[in-house]
Amino acid sequence: MSINLGYFIRESVVNFRRNWVLSLGAVITIYLSLLLVGVSLATSVVVTNIVKSVEEKVSIQIFIKDGANSSDVTSLQNAVAKDDLVKSVRYISKEEALRIFKEQTMKESPEIVEQLEDNPLPASLDVELKDPRNVEQMVVKIKANPDFLKVCDRPDKPEESLKYSEQTVKKLFALTNIVRVVLAAFIGMLAVVSLIFINNAIRLAIYARRKEIGIMRLVGAGNWFIRTPFLLEGVIQSLIGAALAIATLGVVRAALMPRIGEALPFLPMSVNTTASLQISAVLVVSGVLIGLVGAAFALRRYLKV
């Protein structure tokens, strides 16, 4: 077996050298396809991170009118806190709200803060949810609470007393779904192109060696003995492509990502090491699959036994 393995590898390398232009073509297509696969996987990791961070910011704010009965507020807070959908409820007093506002605004436009004479901000309850997707359900529940009407700052229009960024989340989800579909379509097309290229490269390799193959058949070489070098060649081509793609992604991650992160500080743009290892593994596996399938197609069509 050890002799055989050496033989197969030798044959594949010889083939690769003989048809290096076509092999290079196959390697480059696989490289580009896998690079795009890698980029889209990384993108989806980043997008997931962004969505998560936005989701974490999704909370329901219940504005409370000035002078509301504090026992009513407490009972509302307790009722909401008991709900299964809710992670936590925090009471923010008028003073605290002002302090937060000042902190946020001071840097950019201190004149606004200076012009504030009394405190225009209402007190509020900040409701954080376990799953941000349930935000609307929770809003309905809060509206149904009798204490809510008693304490909210706009009893005539209760919905105005609730603030939540439901629309933002919905749009973000829609966008990420579109991005995923488009990337998947791209990947699919590139996979087909790669398959065709591998198929062609292997076909030429078979053609270049048709005489040897004929003799091998005549003297009774096993079918797999004849096929294996070609399969191996396809796999080698895709592994080289995968290695190049992984290297490129690594360079991009090391050199480019920090700069993008600086340019967009409000979005978490990092891809952590675990994720990038997983992406590399996916690239290697899908590369090997593309190589095997492409070569197998060529063998089926051009190497009848």
């Binding site: 005489k211 040897e212 004929g214 003799i215 058949r217 005549l218 003297v219 009774g220 070489a221 096993g222 079918n223 036994v305």
Partner: peptide, 21 residues
């Protein structure tokens, strides 16, 4: 079909065009 190679190992074959590499 996987047995065909073993059949061919028992059949020597010579052609007009020699088929040498």
């Amino acid at each position: 079909s996987w047995k065909v190679p073993y059949l061919r190992r028992n059949i020597g074959c010579v052609f007009q065009d020699f088929k040498l590499l």
